[in-house]
């Protein structure tokens, strides 16, 4: 296995949110994580990104432990649910935090920034961007160093069909280059386009094969 997550545990005080989450992914996989609200999906991503310290568990990449390693910063990128942008500044200024001037120009010309269509709104203030543009800019900031693993927290929420399709084209391209994507989502389209779906309940992750039966999916997610 290229990426192997084993026994991730996390508690907030006495409340145990993750009780030993384990799963694995190969290069080129897009793993969708679903589950009811408050089940620990975002917590899991933050643990894998190194923002939160898990109480136990490991995150291996090609046999090497990432969680307490410097490699984590170069191999893993995290795209949060909210907006990690400086609202008062332009898209270009926001990118300056993550890209050197040369890297930015090169990427705008023939790299990831061009694929994401960032050039369309480079001089626009972040606060004036549409939701889709903001999401693309957020992803552009997160993937600055072309990471192998991208962790995304509800990347397509509130996006229109065109914006969502554009993002998925980018995700597909990343996976085709041998990268891994782990995304938390509530969107059926995301589940359909993912190579693997995990459902998070009772603090554990189970693989789930979506057959198109929405009622079964709702029951599985403890919605009903």
């Amino acid at each position: 296995m290229t990426a192997e997550i084993k026994g991730i545990e996390k508690s907030y005080g006495k409340k145990s949110v993750l009780r030993g989450v384990s799963f694995s992914a190969e290069r080129g996989d897009a793993v969708a994580i679903i589950g009811g609200n408050g089940r620990g999906k975002s917590t899991l991503l933050k643990c894998l990104a190194g923002i939160l310290r898990p109480d136990a568990g490991s995150f291996m990449w090609e046999g090497a432990e990432l969680l307490r390693s410097r490699e984590l910063k170069s191999l893993v990128s995290y795209v949060p649910q909210g907006t990690p942008l400086i609202e008062e500044l332009s898209a270009r200024d926001n990118l300056r935090l993550w890209y050197s001037r040369g890297e930015m120009e090169l990427s705008l010309e023939k790299g990831l920034l061009r694929d994401l269509g960032i050039g369309e709104f480079l001089k626009t203030r972040a606060s004036r961007l549409s939701i889709g543009m903001r999401k693309r800019l957020t992803i552009a900031c997160a993937i600055a160093r072309d990471p192998q693993i991208i962790l995304l927290d509800e990347p397509t929420a509130s996006l229109d069909i065109a914006a969502r399709e554009r993002l998925w084209q980018f995700f597909d391209a990343h996976c085709a280059r041998g990268g891994v994507m782990i995304l938390v989502t509530h969107e059926l389209r995301d589940i359909e386009r993912s190579s693997k779906t995990l459902i998070l309940r009772n603090g554990l992750a189970e693989e789930y094969n979506f057959s198109g039966d929405y009622t079964a999916l709702a029951e599985a997610m403890e919605w009903s």
Binding site: A49, K73, Y78, P84, E87, W98
Partner: peptide, 15 residues
């Protein structure tokens, strides 16, 4: 008040 907490999280992950 307009600081993004998510930006803080991303920055701490990166560098």
């Amino acid at each position: 008040s307009r600081r993004s907490r998510e930006l803080g999280n991303m920055l701490s992950v990166r560098a």
